[in-house]
Computed example of a mutant assay.
Amino acid sequence: MTSCTDPSSPGTRPSLWRHRAWSDVTEYRVPSTRSRTSEVVLGCLRSVSVAGADLFGARHAAFEDEARALPDELAAGGSLVEETVFTVLLARRPGGAQ
């Protein structure tokens, strides 16, 4: 399964959790390498509202052609490789409160 989520979204920041009742926050960072095809990259683009087909009207096909060109060029017939860090936040309330 491929995720298209933004790792910088507010829910992923430990500092925000610490300001709430979850003061005992541990962050685990796991380096990861993943490969994606150009088609998967384009699929992620399709999943965000700013790239919705209805926003482009008659130009949508041209937009998708342009959006596909760069990943296709960079992948050179293969996959695009992304070096990333998978972050897990483990949050607990102090004193075992629920």
Rank of each mutant, 00 (worst) to 15 (best):
L89I: 07
R59F: 09
E39K: 13
P7M: 12
S8R: 14
S35A: 11
L45W: 12
V85K: 14
A58M: 06
T37I: 00
D65H: 13
T37E: 03
T87R: 14
Y28G: 05
L16H: 04
A53I: 02
A53H: 11
S47K: 15
E83T: 08
D54G: 10
S32N: 12
P7G: 08
R92C: 03
W17A: 01
A76C: 05
Y28I: 06
S32T: 13
R93D: 03
V48L: 06
F86C: 08
D6R: 15
Y28R: 15
V41L: 14
A51F: 15
T2L: 11
F56Q: 04
R36A: 14
R46L: 02
T2W: 12
M1C: 04
S3D: 09
L45Q: 09
H60K: 11
R29S: 09
G96H: 03
V41W: 11
S32G: 13
S23F: 01
P10Y: 11
A69C: 03
L90M: 09
T33R: 15
C4L: 05
V30P: 05
D72G: 13
G43L: 03
R36N: 09
F86I: 13
S79I: 02
R34N: 01
L70W: 06
G43P: 01
S23Q: 14
G77Q: 03
R92H: 10
W17G: 00
G95H: 13
A53L: 02
T26S: 05
R20T: 15
G52I: 08
G57P: 04
A97K: 04
E82V: 15
L70V: 06
S23Y: 01
D6S: 12
P7V: 10
W17K: 06
E64H: 09
G77P: 00
V30N: 06
R34I: 00
D65I: 05
W17V: 01
L80H: 07
S15F: 01
R36Y: 15
P7E: 03
A69S: 10
E66N: 10
E82W: 14
V50C: 06
H19I: 07
G57W: 08
S8N: 12
A67V: 03
V40Y: 10
A53E: 14
H19R: 15
F86K: 11
R13E: 02
D54Y: 13
A51M: 10
E27N: 05
A21W: 05
W22Q: 08
S79V: 13
S49M: 10
V41F: 14
L89F: 04
S47D: 05
P7W: 11
P10S: 07
R46M: 02
A58C: 01
L80T: 00
G96K: 05
A62E: 08
Y28P: 00
T12P: 00
T87E: 11
L42Y: 03
R59D: 14
R13V: 02
E64A: 04
S38F: 07
A21P: 00
R92N: 09
E39D: 10
R18T: 08
R93L: 09
L89H: 04
A51L: 10
A76N: 10
G96Y: 01
G11I: 04
T37K: 04
T37S: 12
Q98P: 15
A91D: 05
V30D: 05
S38M: 08
E64I: 09
R34E: 02
S47W: 02
V25R: 03
R46H: 03
L70D: 04
